[in-house]
């Protein structure tokens, strides 16, 4: 019995260490974002210091960061919107009207995820150059729609499948047509999981790096590209500014952590019931 207790204590310590490792690096970056350069470049890490807002002021005042932020918001927002508008109905059709191609369609949607991003980015770069659309928001929105649409479909099919069939059946008896059932019954019932799917698609394209790096050079650069350029600055690195821009880049995805964890919970509840 004693050995068992000891095991639990050791297990708890390991869990706390893992939690520490998950949080501390991010927390440390946040602290550094509020430090003056002299407080970062120290032989011993400093926990107590006079905080400064200079780094954030500098980052937010820089035109390139601001432009990257606007580009990221427009490109991610538009591609997620298109992905949701087209993807949610498609997912519903796959979940509720299975036919002999359904399996193939689902495999096709998944297989898009197999493609190495570099294999999509290289030809697309040439295509957009030939069309004269290289380095524009439009070309980025179209390219990201491939990612958002596939992701929304993939994650929404199980969400629609979890809507009780009886409810839809009852609505049909009450005289609802198939479209009314989708908009008035299935969509509201599955809403929570669907928001999770859309949020996931947003996080995916907000964080996307390689395709944006290859398809933009100045006008349509997204925030991850701008942030990575800051991290490649020369010898006299402005560490505080770097940390501040990383914090700025990470805030939008972290806002969705509650939604995504809710989606995870509802995805696994199905199996117990």
């Amino acid at each position: 019995m004693n050995a068992h207790k000891l095991g639990r204590v050791v297990g708890r310590i390991l869990l706390l260490l893992a939690a520490f490792s998950a949080v501390f690096p991010v927390f440390w970056t946040l602290l550094n974002a509020f430090k003056n350069r002299v407080d970062i470049v120290t032989p011993t890490p400093l926990f107590f210091f006079t905080p400064t807002l200079d780094n954030f002021a500098y980052v937010l005042g820089r035109e390139s960061v601001f432009a990257g932020l606007i580009n990221s918001l427009i490109i991610s927002g538009a591609s997620v919107l298109i992905g949701a508008l087209l993807g949610l109905p498609a997912a519903y059709a796959i979940a509720r009207y299975p036919n002999r191609w359904s399996g193939d369609i689902q495999f096709f949607v998944l297989s898009l995820r197999f493609l190495p991003p570099v294999a999509i980015a290289i030809p697309l770069m040439v295509i957009w150059l030939d069309f004269g659309l290289y380095d524009t928001r439009l070309s980025m929105i179209v390219t990201y729609t491939l990612l958002t649409l596939a992701t929304v479909i993939w994650l929404s099919v199980p969400a629609f499948a979890r809507v009780p069939k009886e409810v839809e059946e009852a609505a049909r008896v009450d005289g609802y047509g198939p479209y009314a059932i989708f908009f008035l019954i299935a969509l509201p019932i599955a809403l929570r999981s669907l928001i999770g799917a859309v949020a996931f698609a947003f996080v995916l394209v907000w964080n996307e790096f390689l395709i944006a790096l290859m398809l933009t050079t100045s006008d349509a650069k997204t925030l991850p590209i701008v942030a990575s350029e800051l991290t490649q600055l020369g010898r006299d690195v402005p560490w505080g500014i770097l940390n501040a821009s990383v914090v700025l880049l990470s805030i939008p995805p972290l806002l969705f952590i509650g939604v995504l964890s809710g989606m995870l919970n509802s995805a696994f509840k199905r199996k117990t019931s």
Partner: peptide
């Protein structure tokens, strides 16, 4: 609580995660 904390690293943009650790 732990599940929420363990989700945080993967939600970070990879560029952020890479920089956080590059500096660490």
């Amino acid at each position: 609580i732990l599940a929420l904390l363990f989700l945080m690293p993967v939600i970070l943009p990879r560029v952020s995660a890479a920089f956080v650790w590059k500096f660490a």
